[in-house]
Design a protein around this nucleic acid. Sequence first.
DNA 1: TTTGCCTTGTTATTTAATTAACAAATAAAA
DNA 2: TTTTATTTGTTAATTAAATAACAAGGCAAA
Lengths: 221, 221
Amino acid sequence: MEEKDSFNHLPHKTIARLSQYRRALLLCLSRGKSHIFSHEIATIQHITPVQVRRDLMLIGYSGTLRKGYNIRELIDLIGNIIDSDEGIKVAIVGMGNLGRALINYFSGKRHKLEIVAGFDTNPDKIGNTMNGVPCYPAERMKEIIEREKIEIGIITVPAQNASQTANELVAAGIKGLLNYTPKPIDVPDYVYLEEYDMITTLEKVAFYVKMRQSEEESNKK
Amino acid sequence: MEEKDSFNHLPHKTIARLSQYRRALLLCLSRGKSHIFSHEIATIQHITPVQVRRDLMLIGYSGTLRKGYNIRELIDLIGNIIDSDEGIKVAIVGMGNLGRALINYFSGKRHKLEIVAGFDTNPDKIGNTMNGVPCYPAERMKEIIEREKIEIGIITVPAQNASQTANELVAAGIKGLLNYTPKPIDVPDYVYLEEYDMITTLEKVAFYVKMRQSEEESNKK
DNA sequence: TTTGCCTTGTTATTTAATTAACAAATAAAA
DNA sequence: TTTTATTTGTTAATTAAATAACAAGGCAAA
C-alpha cells in the first residue's frame, strides 16, 4: 500500500512514457535481448537517455552498471505500476470508424485492459460483434456497465452527442473517460477525464508548418 | 512579416487552445451572439478565465471593458494567426478505420485545411472516393503529393509500416507529419512532427483510475 | 595493476506553462 | 455625484517538465 502510494506523484508525462517503454521492451524481449541501455531505449523513443534514466529513477528501478537494465524485470515493474491487478474493463460508445479503429488497435493486445462492450444507436450495428466486442444498444449502457463492472469509457460519438453520452456514462458509474470528440465535456471531480481533439492537432501541425516556411522566407532575405 | 514573426513564440498549448476557442466562437456566432466574456469562453472550454485572457493578450487582442470580446473580430484574428493564407493540403496514408474517421471529421469543415488525397495498398480501396477524398495506390504517393502540393501527411497505417511510410512521405517533400501509429517515427529536423499514441493514452487513463481508487481505499482506513 | 572509457543515478539548472494577484476602467446603482 | 460591482490586461509567483552537469562504479585494455 505504502509503496503504491509512492507512485501517485509521478509526472503525467512519465506515466505516458512508461507505457511506451514497455511496448518497446516487449519487442526487444521477443527478439531475444535480455538487457538494454538507456541510450538504446532513448533511440527507439526518440528522446534523450537522461530522460529515460530519470524516469526509471522515479520508479525506483536500478540497472547494472555497464550492462544496462534487465528487460524482463523492467517490464514487470512497469506492469506493477501502471496495470491494475485485476484488470480494467473498457467500453466504447460510438461504433463508427473511430470506435472500430480503437477496437482493432486493442484487440488481444493488452490483457490487463480489455474492451468488452461497444454501444451504438444504429440498429444495423447492434447485435454485431467486432473483433470479439459485442455492440449493444445505447439504452442498455447503464445496465451493461454495471453488470460487467466496466470502469472506463471511450466516447467516439458525433460531437453533438458528446455531453449527453458523457452524462450517461457518469450516471452508469464509470470512473475514467476518454473523449475523442472535439466538444469538451464536463464530468464530476471523481471521474478522470482525458480529451483529445484531432482537429486541433491538425490545425496545430498546419500552424507550425506555415510558421517554419515564413521563417525560412525571412531568412533568405 | 514582422507581425507574423511575433507569433512564432506563442506557447504550443496556446496555439491548441486558439484553435478550440475559434470553434467555440463560431458556434456562438451562429447563435447570434456578438460579444463574449473571458469567463464564458472559459466555461465552454473548461479552463480558467485567466488563461483565456492570457492567451488573448499573447495574440494582442483587446476586448472592451465590461462588454467582452467581439466574436467576429476574434475569429478573424485567430484565423490570421493559425491559418495559412493560401490554405494547406493534407494527405492521409492508410485508409482503414482511423483514416476514414479522420476524413469524416474533416469533410467540409475547415476550408483552409483540406484533405485532398488518401493512399492505401488494398486494391479494393484504391480508386474509390470517401467523402470526396480519392484513394490512390501507395506507389503514387510521391507523384501525387508533388502534383497537388500537399504539405501535411497523416499516418494511419498499421504500426509495422509506420517508419517506411514516414520515409516515403518525407521523400515526397512533406513538411508536417501527424503519426497516429503507436510506433515512434524519425524525421529530419525540417519536418514538423506530432505523434499521438492511443494505447498509451488509454493506459494512462487506466493508471489514474486505479490510482484514485487505491487512494480512496487508504483514506477510508 | 593502472588507466581510460562507458554507463548509471542523482542533483542542479533551465525552460515551459499555469495560476495568482492586482491595477485600471467603466457601467450601473445608490 | 459617489459608490459598488464587474471585467479586462499585465506582472509576479508557482508548478511541472526537460535538460545539463557530474560523481561514482566497474569493465577492458594496456
